[in-house]
Amino acid sequence: MKQYRKSILFVSGNNPKMLQDAPIFGSDGVVFDLEQAVAVEEKDSARLLVKEALRFLDYSGVDVIIRINALDSGYGEQDIELIARERPFAVMIPKASPEQITKIESKLAKIELEEGFPAESIKLIPVIETAYALQYVHKIITSSPRITGVFFNAEGLTADFGMQRTKKGEEIIYARSRIVVACRAEKLNAIDTPFLDSNDYEGLEKDCYRARNMGFTGKAAIDGRQIKIIHDIFD
């Protein structure tokens, strides 16, 4: 298993306070989100803020992961061009597909060469959040040696299916199982979807046990207060 095994904490890439506070909660990884957490009209500003934060703030104790925009959104290429030069630990790829991963990989290879970074030093974390990605999850995770794990976004997947999300999560049992089997077979990290009610600690605990007992290596968090419970259960 690689780093960020137990927890990743999502923060908005356009919020300076969150970017500054992100490392203090002790998560294995922090995800600076340029995609879902940033409005379309703020994409440029968030990208610059994350770039400056990576230069200025001390993230040495945590894996920094950047969730870029999908390449077909019109923002993804600019995200990679600006952020990869600051050498984050990994780039998180929304709506993952083998085709998108191949394109991103060649862009990263070019930047690594230009910047003098070791080849394949910037890792990839595909997001499984579409029916297509779920169907081809094994093909996706074996499409690049840079891939160190997968993030399962149940909100995205259930939206793609038109299903209603519940706290109990019966609607995502098949998806969780399929992702875990693929990741375990390839010895990659499998990070479960976040528990969205950040005030329901009992619910978070139950959800962590469910994910752990299915084989996930860790869980995403949307609030720093969730990290301790996640670490206690995924220890």
Partner: peptide
Amino acid sequence: ALDYTIRARVQA
């Protein structure tokens, strides 16, 4: 704002 935020916002 810290320096990095000022730089990013001015550039944007």
